[in-house]
């Protein structure tokens, strides 16, 4: 399934699922803060502007309908122009649900961060409901002086339920070079995912990536955060927290603790 990179004219309900896109553009407003000249979404995406804080504009995604369902194709993009700062959140967890046909859903996120720009991408967790099948790709392109905080949390199944199938790929490029590239695959069709190498029975997994040119001089030190989480320097001016946990709450605690350690 291909996903349009430019937003389609309107949410399009095909016989098999919804195609929808949302887009945010953040630019310096000339008064020391950041404006959001583009803040548009359709179908399941409703975007809201929140009160900005200092230099940082804030946008929030409000889930307007159940999505993604199997067969849906969702595209979300944010562009943070040179010198701008954006914080992005969601009001609630995103729940991947089964569709009518068994077709997988696609959810593609594309983030571009310019020179001296800052993006804090802090959505609520993704929950993979039993029977769902979601392919998620996130591609982040950073200018050399851009800064990024990116959080990703996945919860495998709702309470008392098996997980659906979830395949994600997260690619971060900085100055056109690969900085971080990772696929995660859980649930039916992902061999060995519950075994001792991958998740070892834990139901929540997440990561927090921080990219900051200041790490070039002063990289983070490897820090063990309890039994199942670790903060490590990447091969570049970036840090990664990798964590697995029994549930979303424990997972968030790990990620927050690491964010505090890094003063982010």
């Amino acid at each position: 399934m291909t996903v349009p990179t430019a937003p389609p004219p309107a949410a399009l309900a095909t016989g098999f699922g919804v195609r929808a896109a949302a887009r945010v553009v953040a630019v310096p407003d000339g008064r020391g803060s950041t404006g959001l000249p583009v803040l548009e979404g359709e179908g399941p995406f409703a975007l809201r502007r929140l009160r900005s804080a200092g230099r940082e504009a804030r946008a929030c995604l409000v889930g307007a309908m159940s999505a993604p369902l199997g067969g849906d194709a969702l595209a979300l993009s944010a562009t943070v122009a040179d010198g701008a700062a954006l914080r992005f959140t969601t009001t609630a967890a995103t729940i991947a649900l089964p569709g009518r046909t068994g077709a997988p859903a696609a959810y593609d996120t594309r983030l571009d961060v310019g020179e001296d720009a800052v993006l804090r991408w802090l959505p609520e967790p993704l929950i993979s409901a039993g029977g769902s099948d979601l392919r998620m790709t996130t591609r982040i392109d950073l200018a050399p002086s851009a800064r990024l905080v990116y959080r990703e949390e996945q919860v495998l199944g709702r309470a008392g339920e098996d997980t659906g199938r979830l395949v994600t790929r997260l690619t971060v490029r900085r100055a056109g070079r690969p900085l971080f590239d990772q696929e995660l695959a859980y649930g039916p069709g992902a061999p060995g995912w519950a075994g001792g190498a991958v998740l070892g029975g834990y139901g929540a997994v997440g990561q927090l990536i921080v990219v900051d040119p200041a790490f070039e001089e002063r990289p983070v030190e490897r820090t063990l955060l309890g039994e199942t989480a670790v903060l490590t320097p990447l091969a570049g001016p970036a840090a990664l927290v990798t964590a697995v946990a029994p549930d979303a709450l424990c997972l968030r605690r790990h990620l927050d603790a690491a964010a505090n350690l890094m003063d982010w």
């Binding site: 690969p178 995660l184 991958v198 990561q207 490897r222 063990l224 490590t232 697995v244």
Partner: peptide, 22 residues
């Protein structure tokens, strides 16, 4: 190009490798 290569990863292998190194 190299980006077409797969990148599957195992969180526990990464976490425990760092623990083991200490």
């Amino acid at each position: 190009g190299a980006e077409a290569l797969p990148a599957p990863s195992a969180p526990l292998l990464d976490i425990t490798a760092e623990q083991h190194a200490t």
